[in-house]
């Protein structure tokens, strides 16, 4: 018998303690099971992740976030309007975030809160919606899609995710609008605005909103609401995007820099 064979039967320090082993397998479990994330090596991530970052001398982990988004229903369908700024701390991480996620050709969603949180879970939702189509030979309804999303989000309640989403899309031959957030809220409604600049958007939106708006009036109301939010909220800005959702699908209506909008509205005031 070779020496090596004997050694195989000897107890090893490494066998007794598995601590040296890699955490890799669990870290990327989401690559095969997209709804499962690896658990942190400490309890209560909301508080302890915070402590972890607090104790650092000069480390500040800033995740991209900050937003104004809105959506409302009127006689012609749904209008979604969003800004495009992402801030990490006081630093503007990006002025070109696409905050409307195109889930499929009927469904749209907006993202507010943690950018990574929202984009990741929207991607999961997109795959769930496609799987539903393949299994059932029909498009998923908005009610069902939001329920799937809500169930996922609720399972991560109190773990520190930060998301506020408005979803719009065709649902049983009508268009509807839902609001979801990381607390596990899921509500259907007519007018929603989400994000740090939402109060400013609501001010404009509520004063101009009525069911009978024409398409053009509705686009302009959404655009103007976001513009005013970018003007008053430091965490919102960049490009104002407007989408129109109808029973048979959605359209991108406009993408305008808020500086251009500012100049246009200023010129209109002077007339």
């Amino acid at each position: 018998m070779a020496l090596n064979d004997i050694l195989k039967h000897m107890p090893s320090v490494g066998d007794m303690l598995s601590d040296y082993k890699s955490t890799e397998e669990m870290d990327f479990i989401n690559l095969s099971q997209n709804k499962v994330l690896s658990a942190p090596p400490y309890s209560n991530p909301v508080e302890n992740l915070a402590k972890l970052h607090e104790n650092n001398d000069n480390i500040k982990i800033n995740f991209d976030h900050g937003t104004t988004t809105l959506g409302f229903i009127y006689q012609g369908g749904v209008v979604l309007a969003v800004d495009s700024r992402a801030t990490g701390g006081q630093y503007i991480g990006s002025q070109s975030v696409r905050k409307v996620v195109e889930i499929n050709d009927l469904l749209l969603g907006t993202l507010a809160g943690g950018a990574a949180d929202c984009t990741y879970w929207y991607r999961v939702l997109t795959s769930e919606c496609r799987l539903y189509e393949l299994r059932n030979k029909k498009k998923i309804s908005l009610a069902a899609a939001t329920k799937i999303m809500n169930n996922i989000i609720y399972s991560y309640k109190n773990s520190g995710l930060s998301m506020g989403m408005i979803l719009a899309g065709g649902d049983m031959n009508q268009v509807s609008l839902y609001y979801l957030d990381s607390d596990g809220t899921r509500t259907m409604g007519k007018v929603f605005s989400v994000g740090s600049g939402s109060i400013f958007a609501y001010g404009v939106l509520d004063s101009g909103y009525k069911w009978e708006l024409t398409d053009e009036q509705a686009y302009e109301l959404g655009r103007r609401s976001i513009y005013h939010a970018t003007h008053r909220d430091a965490y919102s800005g960049g490009t104002v995007r407007v989408y129109h959702v109808k029973k048979d699908g959605w359209n991108l209506i406009s993408e305008e820099d808020c500086l251009d909008l500012h100049r246009r509205y200023e010129a209109e005031k002077k007339k």
Partner: peptide
């Protein structure tokens, strides 16, 4: 996309 998904896998103990 792969990198994004891998990094999100460590959402609660991020790669800094």
């Amino acid at each position: 996309q792969l990198l994004s998904t891998m990094m999100y896998g460590r959402r609660f103990f991020p790669y800094y």
